[in-house]
Structures are given as structure tokens and as C-alpha cells.
Design a protein around this nucleic acid. Structure first.
Lengths: 207, 207
DNA sequence: CGACCGGTTGAGGTGACTCAATGGTCGTGG
DNA sequence: CCACGACCATTGAGTCACCTCAACCGGTCG
């Protein structure tokens, strides 16, 4: 049943917006490949990046609050995704207790993630935040079977800065510092993690 | 059916912990009166306050992530609450599509709230965060029919500081500054808001 | 070749933190 | 009734991390 409801094989180019804040929540999305950024636009017109979406992750969950999406999501790379229209989703929730639990789990996880991020911003300094960001990215990539030590950042420094509540210069300086200390190799957006433990330590706890 | 499932009229004294991180998620709580703080304990043993719970608000939603609570919740004042055991909740979700939507809405709102907080921490300075905190509290109190301009903070400065990613001295200084400028009257935990517009302006946008 | 965009690096300013002292309020016990 | 201590809040002085502004570098595209 679930299989039948999913619309597969859609794709978009980099820069294309998947969902817009304020639009009615017509469907739930899951990214199959590529990556995206989730952000909102403040009253002053600046972007606030709330997070980055990797393969296997869901898009549009905040829409459950009021039937409308609350964030914009736009592709950072060429991106494949599938979508489940809300109509069908509601019908399926009626019949499949397992799916019910799964959706609740997804929402709970999103909440947990938001909470962890809150803790980071509230407690860590710039280097700690950047270290945590890299460690987190690394772990999420590994979970999808990709290399946790060699990867390419699909977002620019300004996006990372917005997400972490810093400036792009500070991001750049933190990366340079990690490079200088031999923890990373950095070439523009290509990252090689040489000492994952060092990052993890800075990123979660023993600052 | 819903009525029958709710266990009513429970109460606890200030300081008592309602749920603990790591415990199996046995029930969903709703606070009827009083207030509570939601926090997690970091590896170093410090508290990170994630939010404050007012009457009419739910406790324990993050538990959906993995069947266990992720935060501690403890009462700041004498507190009345009711609870819905998870067993019953699952049965009800089977039968009541309205309840299903309601739970999803609650989770979506929690996500929205977390996201707004993220924006605050990432973009605003100390005064802006404190102003937003007060404006938000004021609005939530008003929604419950309480005075939006005269209230008593049930949490201490350290809890506010932890929540906003600041120090307690900075909270104190911000409140004193607002007092000096004639926006507030502050006497220990008693707050009178004299110029709500000024707070709202600082708290959301026109910094 | 030149313009542009994203990223790096430097110099200087400042807002928030740290550390420390003072003040207020409440509950307890003399 | 007052003395005392505990706890919370306020205020001040000095430091430091991050921001701001600005110059520079290296690709890429016309």
C-alpha cells in the first residue's frame, strides 16, 4: 500500500525550491540523493538556515503544525526525491499502525535534532560549533554508507555560518585552525577528516 | 473515549521531576496549572534548559523519537497535570482521526517553536533574546487568559540564561536596561510590562 | 583578459563572559 | 524581635572571542 502511494523518481536542479513557507502542505518528501537546505526568511529579508537535508531524510515535517509549510527547502545539488501526497498519507495512517509509529518517530527525531542544536548554540563557542557540525555531517553520511572522512560540502560558508549563528569569516577561520592543527585537510569545499576523535571531542563535551 | 483515557487531577510540588531522560515513554502529559522547565544534562553535568512549560502545554513529545523521554521535566511551581498512558493513546489513535491530526499538530508546533528559538539564538544579541523571551512568555500567558503585562517569573535568572545561551549576569543587565528605559518594571521575579511594543520590536525584527 | 564569486586572512572594535563584591529577601533559631 | 545564613539578584571592572570592515587570492565564465 505504501509503495503504491509513493510518487517516485522526481528530480530537480541545484537552486530549485522544493517547498515554500506558507504553501499548503500538499505532500511529505523524502530525499533520495543530493542535498538541500532548509531555511526561513526573516522580516528583514535575511535567510536563517535551519538545517541541511541529506539522502534518506524527510522534508516538510513542520507543516503538520498548521497544514502549511513553515520553511523553504531548496536543492544545493542535483537532487532526486519522492513524495507522498497528504491525502494518501492520511488514508494510510488510518490503516497502518506501523506507519503511524514511523511518522511519529520521524517527528520526534526532528525535535531531538532541534534540541541538540539548541544545546550547541547555547553552550559551545565557534570552534566547538564547527567541530560539531562536521562530526554530525560525517556521522549522517556514514549512516547512508558514504565516507565519513572524505566528503564535499554542498553548502557555502555563509549557509554554515547562518546555521551555526556565526559569520562566514569565523567559519573560515575555524576550518583553517583545524587544518593548521592537522585535524582536517580543507580545499575549498572538499574536506578530509584526519582526526575524527579530535573533532568529536571538541564537538560534544570535553571542550 | 478520550475523556475516559485521561488520568486527571495529579499534582506535584515545586522541584519534583515529572519525567526523566532515558525513561521509557509511558505517558503523554498536559500541564493544567503551574509551570515546569524542560532540560537535559550534558556530559559535563551542566543543565541545558530547552524550554518552559505553561498551563495547557504538553510534556514528553520528544519521546516519540525512540520510545524514551529525552529531557527531564521538573516543576517550577506547584503543578497540576493530567496524563494519557501510551497504551491507551495508541488505541485511541487507531480510532480517532481527529486525535491523530491533533497529535501531529502538537509535534509540528513543537518543531516550529524549536526553529524559532534557533533563529533567535543565531541572529539576536543578548537584549534581543531577553526581549523576545518576555514577549513570547507574555503572549503564551495571554493565550491562557492570564495577564500579558503583569506576571511573575517562575524560573530563576540562571534558567533563563541557560535557555537563551547567555549568563545570568547578562540577563540581569538586560532587565535592568529595560527598566532604565521605562519598558518594564522589575522587582525580583515580578514583571510589569509598560511598553509591550518596544519589547516586541526588539524581539522580532527591527533591532 | 577582466569581472565575478566564493573563500581566506588581517586589524581593530565591542558585546558578552569572568570574577568579584554588594544588596535583598526569606526562613530559621536564638 | 532581631541575628544569622542561604539563596538569588544586581552591579562593576577587566578580558577575550567573535564581529565588522577591508584587502587579497584563486578559480570560472564570459
Amino acid at each position: 500500500m505504501l509503495e503504491a502511494a509513493v510518487e517516485r523518481g522526481r528530480q530537480v536542479l541545484p537552486g530549485v525550491t522544493l517547498v515554500r513557507a506558507g504553501e499548503p502542505m500538499a505532500a511529505l518528501f523524502v530525499v533520495r540523493s543530493g542535498s538541500a537546505k532548509r531555511y526561513s526568511v526573516t522580516l528583514e529579508g535575511t535567510e536563517q538556515v535551519h538545517g541541511f537535508i541529506l539522502p534518506g531524510e524527510a522534508v516538510g515535517l513542520e507543516g503538520f503544525a498548521g497544514g502549511r509549510y513553515l520553511c523553504e527547502v531548496s536543492a544545493l545539488e542535483a537532487l532526486h526525491y519522492c513524495r507522498v501526497p497528504m491525502r494518501k498519507l492520511e488514508q494510510l495512517l488510518e490503516r497502518l499502525p506501523g506507519l503511524r509509529r514511523e511518522i511519529l518517530r520521524l517527528l520526534g527525531q526532528a525535535l531531538d535534532e532541534a534540541q541538540r542544536l539548541h544545546g550547541e548554540l547555547a553552550q559551545r563557542d565557534a570552534r566547538g560549533r564547527v567541530a560539531h557540525f562536521l562530526a554530525d555531517l560525517s556521522e549522517r553520511l556514514a549512516r547512508r554508507g558514504l565516507s565519513p572522512t572524505e566528503f564535499r560540502l554542498s553548502m557555502n560558508r555563509a549557509d554554515i555560518a547562518s546555521h551555526l549563528g556565526l559569520t562566514l569569516e569565523t567559519i573560515s577561520r575555524a576550518l583553517s585552525a583545524f587544518k593548521r592543527e592537522g585535524w582536517l585537510r580543507v580545499r575549498a569545499r572538499d574536506i578530509s577528516v584526519l582526526r575524527p576523535e579530535a573533532l568529536a571531542a571538541l564537538g560534544s563535551g570535553c571542550a
